[in-house]
Write a protein that binds this DNA or RNA. Structure first.
Lengths: 214, 214
DNA sequence: CCTACCGATCGGTAGG
DNA sequence: CCTACCGATCGGTAGG
């Protein structure tokens, strides 16, 4: 449980092979998209935030939409799949229990979202307002989720006292839902800050108890 | 458990005392805001959807922002507080157990969101992109939630085998999170339709088990 | 003088 | 990386 969350967006950005100007544009864009949304951000705002002209932005990114995809691509195509492999290996190699797996995933994804909450907010926002993006996202993520779900199902099948009505996607939705309310509460509604380890512990135990039969 | 969800937006709209044109504008606006977001919807789109001119819209609503508030106001100011009173009365009068309360609230709010999911999506969207709206929302909702939370805390204190680390807001976040993943999955990601009673049952039992001590 | 609306166009700004 | 612009569309308003 030492490898927390793998790569994050800032790290990916710092190490990516690109001109510094392009990097600054992406940094400014992530900040503004997460704060005001894609539609609520103008290229003029991005230019001001990045300290350059609008023309300089369109030099690197032909359209605003391409800029959006450049931000979401590393999240959707690299970071989630990396997790998928880690995840399957974690199950296969260590033959952990379902409770250990839940503890690992919650811990791992919590710190992943702490490091990538801006891009996560942008993703959620886009899901809410862009039908085409939803379709693309489904086509990209669903195949990647299948192996993980199969592993979870096997673990559920070989565990005592499991609620047989629950399928892996239910557990996924449960964890994602708790992350959404937590991070929206913290970063958007500015609710009183909570201690990370306490939050991780609560989400973990809640999820572990949720799968048990009465 | 017969009174499902009280008023919904369509019902409120149909019975509200206003010119028919104004009603049509609100109906069209809710549809488009829920589909494309506030920023992604132009007054021209609303006019086309409502079958009238843009000037007719501005006759009734001076600005697009006022149109947004006219939609969210009944949700935030009337519908949630109605629930708050119902909720406290449910606890006080019937002296229900915490499990009964969870079952009632999940059932009630599920059908509430089925009837009001469009306005709910608009609200969530606005939380993600509008900082000022978040502040207003907090100031309006937090005071309304306090009595309900106090009732829950009392029930938790007088119930056996309760996880003492959990506070009422944790339970609220847990339920809201499950609703968010469910309704976003159904209406935005277009995941395979699920049977309402099965979903209600899953969310209810998960929440009931989540509050128990190990 | 009211309502419910229209066709046309305003000053500014969007993405490019 | 800049100045100087474009076709179009934005939210909002004019007279009737």
């Amino acid at each position: 449980m030492t490898d927390v969350a793998g790569k994050n967006f800032d790290e990916w950005l710092a190490n990516a092979d690109m001109p510094n100007g392009k990097r600054e544009i992406l940094k400014a864009t992530v900040k503004l998209f997460a704060e005001k949304g894609y539609q609520g951000t103008s290229t003029a705002m991005i230019a001001r935030e990045a300290g350059m002209s609008e023309a300089a932005i369109f030099k690197h990114f032909k359209t605003k939409k391409i800029l959006l995809h450049a931000i979401l691509q590393p999240l959707v195509q690299q970071l989630l799949p990396n997790f998928g492999e880690q995840f399957v290996n974690q199950v296969k190699e260590h033959a952990t229990t379902i409770d250990d797996l839940i503890a690992y995933v919650v811990h791992d994804r919590y710190y992943f979202l702490v490091n990538n909450y801006q891009v996560g907010i942008i993703l959620l926002n886009q899901v809410l307002v862009d039908t085409d993006f939803c379709d693309e996202l489904k086509q990209m993520l669903l195949p990647k989720l299948v192996p993980g779900f199969e592993q979870i199902q096997q673990l559920l099948d070989t565990t005592e006292n499991v609620d047989s009505k629950l399928v892996p996607s239910d557990i996924g939705k449960l964890v994602i839902g708790q992350f959404m309310t937590h991070f929206i509460g913290q970063y958007k509604l500015k609710l009183p800050p909570e201690d990370p380890e306490v939050v991780i512990n609560k989400i973990t135990t809640i999820t572990q108890r949720a799968i048990r039969k009465n």
